[in-house]
Amino acid sequence: MRNQQIILLAVPGVQLLDVSGPLDVFAEANRLLRRPVYRLSVMALEEADVTCSSGVRLRADQLLSQAADHNPHTFLVAGAPDASQRQLSAQQRAQIVALCQRSQRYGSVCSGALLLAQTGLLNGKKVTTHWACADALAMQLPDAQVEADALYVADGPLRTAAGVTSGLDLALRLVEEDLGRELTQEIAANLVMFFQRPVNQSHFVRKQQTSLAGRSALQAMQRWALANLAEIKGVEDLAAHMNLSTRHLTRLFNQALHIQPGAWLERARIAQARTLLENPALPLKTIPAACGYRSADVMRRAFIKITGMTPSHYRKMSIPAEGA
């Protein structure tokens, strides 16, 4: 494999780890192979000095206006906490599109997907981003398939990573594509990271996933439901609490939350289960009933469906071992 240029675009306010994390993975490949397989550089929008969200200043190697001089192997747009408020100019969008089209692979890290989406290159694609930005990205890209639970997604030449540290996961996958699994496993070991994380984004999503929305009466019902999950048997109980038919309740949920009431209730139960599992003093056998499940097996199946792991595995991942 010949020397391949990797370019990361860093906008003002960029999250430094969105840039440095992937670059360190590629740099470790160079170090282990003792040759510059990857030629790494950072690109800025208009000024070479980029102030990151942490206040640290980053010196870019080139500007986007010089994009025509580059034919990178891989081009990635890094994220920033204020990415949803940043509007690229028409010229910047055109320059980014040209760079992506000249690259063998292109994509984004974290909320960088919100910036890349402005180019139109994500329309109709399968993508991911930080879980907190997933709804905003889905609204921005109604024709795209936003995988809110994925750590990284590949769709043709497009590669997108979820929140912040998953940029390292994405970089590992890119190195694996280029140089094979054995070297990539060694890189992961040297950087003290999982070669393939045993979790997905839902492991990190906090209670925002069951946040209240919709008209006041619907919000009141949601508050009641969250406080009484152990007693609620199903959607019929939600409807009865509002003196509505299940059909009418379903219509309200679809209009206000864009979700079926049964799916909302399942997420609420799993959010409750996760909170209880993170308390080591609670016996596992008491948790299903506390969340409204009729048996441990029913909760286990639902938990795996939403989080990608068993309740016992989640507890092991969430509670530090003694002496750690």
Rank of each mutant, 00 (worst) to 15 (best):
A136Q: 15
K126V: 13
V109L: 09
A132N: 11
R93T: 11
V50D: 01
V14I: 12
Y152F: 15
T129K: 04
R215G: 05
A134G: 05
T119G: 06
A29I: 00
R300Q: 14
M139D: 13
T246A: 10
S41R: 14
G120D: 04
M221C: 13
L17G: 04
T250H: 04
V25I: 15
P157Y: 08
Q85F: 13
K207C: 10
G156Q: 13
G21L: 05
I306L: 14
R315Y: 07
A144L: 09
L244G: 00
Q201I: 05
D155N: 11
L137I: 02
N228W: 09
H70L: 14
Q219K: 15
L257Y: 00
A161S: 15
A78N: 08
L252Q: 11
I6C: 03
S295C: 10
R223T: 12
L170S: 01
A90V: 12
T160E: 08
T165P: 14
E236T: 13
M317Y: 14
V164M: 13
L64T: 02
L174C: 04
G292M: 01
E47N: 14
M221K: 05
N3Q: 15
A239M: 07
A240C: 09
P36S: 10
A296N: 07
L191Y: 06
K126Q: 15
A117D: 01
A273H: 03
E186V: 06
H258V: 12
T74K: 00
M317G: 03
R251L: 13
G323H: 04
T128D: 06
T160L: 09
R223K: 14
A227S: 13
M299P: 00
S295Y: 10
L238H: 04
L170W: 00
L58V: 05
R197L: 09
L45K: 04
R274N: 02
P261C: 06
A240L: 13
C110W: 00
R300D: 12
K316V: 10
T129G: 06
D143Q: 15
D297H: 13
V56N: 10
D178Q: 11
E177R: 11
L116K: 02
A150R: 07
K125I: 04
A134V: 02
A60S: 13
A138H: 06
E177H: 12
E176M: 07
D61K: 06
T165H: 09
A225S: 15
G79D: 05
L238W: 01
T210W: 07
G180Y: 03
I96Q: 00
L115I: 10
S89P: 01
L191I: 05
E47D: 13
V199N: 06
L179H: 12
L282H: 05
L99I: 07
T246S: 12
L168H: 04
M299Q: 10
